[in-house]
Amino acid sequence: MENEIISFIDYSFAYQNSGQRALENINLSIKRGEIVVIVGPTGCGKSTLLRSINGLIPHMFQGEIKGSVTVDGLLVQESPVNELSKRVGLVFQNPENQIFMFTVERDIAFGLENTGVPRLEMKKRVDEAIESLGIGHLRYKPPYELSDGEKHRVAIAGVLAMKPDILVLDEPTSLLDPRSAMDLMKTIEGLHKKFGMTILIVEHRLEFSAVIANRIVVMNKGKIVSTGPVREILAAEESLKLGVGIPPITRLHMALKDGGIELGQTPITPKEFMQNVRGKLHD
């Protein structure tokens, strides 16, 4: 495909000494500029999939690989991590594995210092990242003396400041208060519009991320079981069975549908739900 930026072809991976495959025959193609949300039960292989994009697998986590992953023309297995990290920014599931400098500001600047970005540009990007994550008050604090949600915001800011072509986030809102989670989704949407970034988000709760996504990929037991437009996947019976975090308002819509009340397009927010209801009442 011409504008394809990430491609998994017949890709399988087993962690060393684990005895079983964490990913099994994955075929997945992501287009440049897509926003894709990846969902699936606890332990199904979501983080493993993300690690296979930025080269943590196989360069940090050893194991047995079959097939291939290609990112922006680079074959991941054969490309050095520093080449990959120029293109892919990954926010880890656990922020403590990602922050290590003595102040928040230095931590956020760390990645940029290593890529030779001019000083002025660097300062501007750090300021922007701090501003968009709302952590100005933490700027000169040591990151390890922060609350968990604050640490998470620092980790996210560090990756955003890099302005990677491909932004990969592993449960980015799990430690954030709901307002910050919503703000983050707006920021991500903004970056997508402004720079055409390709964005992959792993999430269990879909209230916030579903609103900005183009597509959902559903995984189970190391495999991709379905992929499709957001509302289609949220409304699928299979998603409910697999424990996909379908928003309560979407569930309500489906329950009414089962009871014979058809309200129209599958909603993600209460506002959308009410538009449907009003539409029917004023018919």
């Binding site: 699936g40 449960e171 799990s174 269990h204 697999l242 424990g243 975090g245 379908i246």
Partner: peptide, 12 residues
Amino acid sequence: DEPTIGQDSINK
């Protein structure tokens, strides 16, 4: 302290 982090809806 944040028991639902990383949990699918069945675990929740």
